[in-house]
Simulated assay, not measured.
Amino acid sequence: MSETTTRLFPRITEQALDELRARIGVRIENTQEPWCHEATRDNIRHYAHGIGDDNPLWCDPAYAAKSDLGGLVALPSFLFSTSRIVSGYVGGIPGVHAMWAGADWTWHRWVRRNETITTEAWLKDLVEHRTSFAGRSIQQVYHVRFFGEGGDLVAEADSWCFRTDRDAAREEGTKYRDLKRKPPRRYTDDELERIWSLYAQEKPRGATPRHFEDVEVGDTLPTMPKGPMTVTGFIAYAQGWGGLYIRANRLAWKQVKAHPGLGIRNRFNIPDCPERVHWEPEMALMVGAPGAYDYGPERCSWLTHHLTDWMGDSGFLVRATSKLRRHNPEGDLLFIDGRVTAKRVEGGRHLVDIAQEARNQDGELSVVGTGTVALPSRG
């Protein structure tokens, strides 16, 4: 970082990195309490509604009771709410910004209504990168395992955050230099009508099975819109997911007292959480982002929503990956598309592989992903 850069925040140090490397492979004890311990009817619904998903398989008990599953289940991405670690609660390098950037999920079975979920987690790897966003960046990879009430492995995931120097990102980052100079995007009524028409067509496949034999390589999934994004939408997601650092009054004080690096002073000189980059444009600009932006796990959940709508009640999402490529500031709009890339029979299951990508209203790549879905077979 140049000598003229204004220093407002702590930076990445070799000592902090060495201390982090010593934690690789060591199980994390005394993790932050998750937002949800149990997959209750309300917890599941709040998470689903937070990503704009009203699939009755996880939102309507009467419908779910008549399904092949016999009752409510949790949407796959609900597990984000059961672990702060998989959601981006990173340790080490105090005062240095963390941006959730991707995940690689594997699910072994459905999580059922009222089931209690427990987890174990450890730091898996640290990888150094050079980026146009902030120069030096550290990718911090965690592995989390999720267990059901019987102690069986329900799911597992790698997830990662990028740790970036906030001052370097703000003053020297080039990734969003032109975007920051643009006036706020204003949508015409015709543009909005196109989006509303896509929403009008959007619905889960439901009880009509999508059979393995009816799927061909090259088939495309319906385009799923998300947005135009608003701070209201980001807050709706936080209500279901729980956030990482959102606390009030005495609990907020206890958090800052225990972790002073989290307490970034606001315009009233009050130490407040770094998570407000998602609802305060001024804070987002301070860390180099182009404006208040969406949550990373939220975008990953949008991709899995795209897959579960397509597969129907008889399908099962086996695996999904996501890699975020840029921020989605408020005002942005995403179009999620997918294409079948392969199909196979493996271990008695009929599997379909899908490649996904989402681009914004200007055609810029926002996130890429993959999914593997198990479908019923006519045979």
Rank of each mutant, 00 (worst) to 15 (best):
M1G: 15
E3W: 07
T6I: 10
L8Q: 14
A16R: 14
E19I: 02
R23S: 11
I28G: 06
I28A: 09
T31W: 13
N43W: 02
R45P: 00
H46D: 13
G50M: 03
N55D: 12
N55Q: 03
P56K: 00
A62I: 09
A65V: 08
S67Q: 10
L79K: 00
L79S: 01
S81C: 12
S87K: 06
R109H: 08
W110N: 11
W110R: 09
R113L: 14
I117Y: 02
E120K: 06
W122Y: 09
K124V: 05
R130M: 12
R130V: 10
V141T: 15
R145V: 01
F146V: 12
F147P: 01
G148C: 13
G150R: 10
T164A: 10
D165L: 10
R166D: 14
R166H: 06
A168K: 11
K175A: 08
D178T: 11
L179P: 00
D189K: 03
S197D: 13
A200H: 03
E202A: 07
G206N: 12
T220S: 14
P225C: 02
T230G: 07
I235F: 13
W241C: 09
G242I: 13
A248M: 14
K254D: 15
F268T: 03
I270M: 15
E275V: 11
R276C: 13
P281R: 04
L285E: 07
V287F: 09
Y295F: 14
Y295T: 11
C300Y: 08
L303Q: 05
T304W: 07
T308Y: 04
S314N: 09
F316T: 04
D337H: 11
R344L: 12
E346G: 04
R349I: 10
A358G: 03
Q361G: 01
G369R: 04
V373G: 07
A374W: 12
R378A: 12
